[in-house]
Computed example of a mutant assay.
Amino acid sequence: MASEKINREEIIQPENVVYQKPELLNDVPMHYCPGCSHGVVHKLVAEVIADMGMEEKAVGVSPVGCAVFAYRYIDIDWQEAAHGRAPALATAIKRLWPDRLVFTYQGDGDLACIGTAETIHALNRGENIVIIFINNAIYGMTGGQMAPTTLIGQKTTTCPYGRDPELHGYPLNITELAAKLRGTCYVTRQSVDTVASVNQAKKAIRKAFEASMKGMGSSLVEIVSTCSSGWHLSPVKANEWMRKYMFEEYHKGDFKDTTGLK
């Protein structure tokens, strides 16, 4: 029985495409490793900004690390900050232009280690900015070193026998700390490992952005994420490892919400 010749031009039509690229995502190939959570979060940020009609008034601040490349992919105004200093720069931008939607996009090594002071004090002051925090428990870009968020027993290039609390201290739970600061109005921890999780993360980002524009104070949206390369796992195994170990230390959910927003 002769097989039918497939006409690709007939199949690849907009109505047949499951994934629609958000208009604010630049038409360039993403360089992130397979299974990396950054690409999914970029998509959510781009969609929320477009949904809010803030394309011309959104300003992102990206520092150093894998997170820095956000400016290549989301078509809004960006400022690049020195390592860890994104909340300080975002503070200046928001105070100069209070009508702008200002957010930072940071990894855990940047936010929870090198930029701990800037992060904590910006949140405590109640700056009307949003901090998007990608937590994959490792320094992903620079070789897989231990981060403040690295789990007890987790092996990295700088703790090859596993993180030992007596030697290295304990994982730093930034989100729980942020929830206790009087300047924060919305503090949440999400993930993007399932469709349901992606939808919930998008709602969280939208609420944080809306709270910022209403002048309610600081918001922190943590996304528990994978680093397949740094963890030396396949994308599927990385998601499994994250669910088994990361969620045990970094519980998901809202930790503070005084916004009254849905």
Rank of each mutant, 00 (worst) to 15 (best):
F209Q: 01
L220R: 03
P148W: 08
P171V: 13
T175A: 10
R163T: 01
K155S: 07
G183S: 12
T157A: 10
T149P: 07
G169E: 03
R182P: 14
S225W: 11
A211P: 03
K207T: 13
E176R: 13
E222M: 15
I152A: 05
A201F: 05
A147E: 14
R189M: 10
I223L: 14
V187E: 01
A208L: 13
C159R: 03
V198P: 01
E166M: 15
S219T: 10
V224W: 04
A147M: 06
V224L: 11
K214Y: 09
A208D: 02
P148A: 10
G215N: 12
L172T: 10
V221E: 01
D164H: 14
Y170L: 11
A178R: 03
Y161T: 02
G217W: 12
V192H: 05
C227S: 13
T184D: 04
S229N: 07
G230I: 08
E166D: 13
Q190R: 06
C159S: 15
V221K: 01
V195E: 05
R182W: 12
M216P: 08
V195Q: 04
K203P: 00
S197G: 12
G153N: 01
L177V: 09
I223A: 09
Y186R: 05
T156N: 05
I223D: 03
N199V: 08
I205V: 01
R182N: 11
V195D: 09
Q200T: 08
G162W: 11
M213L: 14
E166N: 13
E166A: 15
T158Y: 05
P148F: 14
V221M: 06
P148S: 13
A204E: 00
L151I: 02
K155Y: 11
Q154C: 04
N199W: 05
I152M: 06
T158H: 12
K214Q: 14
D193W: 07
L151R: 00
Q154F: 07
T175L: 10
F209K: 00
K214L: 15
G183T: 09
K180W: 08
M213D: 01
T194Q: 02
S197Y: 07
E176V: 13
S219H: 09
A147S: 15
S228T: 06
T194L: 07
T149Q: 08
Y170E: 11
L167N: 00
P160G: 13
A147P: 07
T184P: 04
R182E: 11
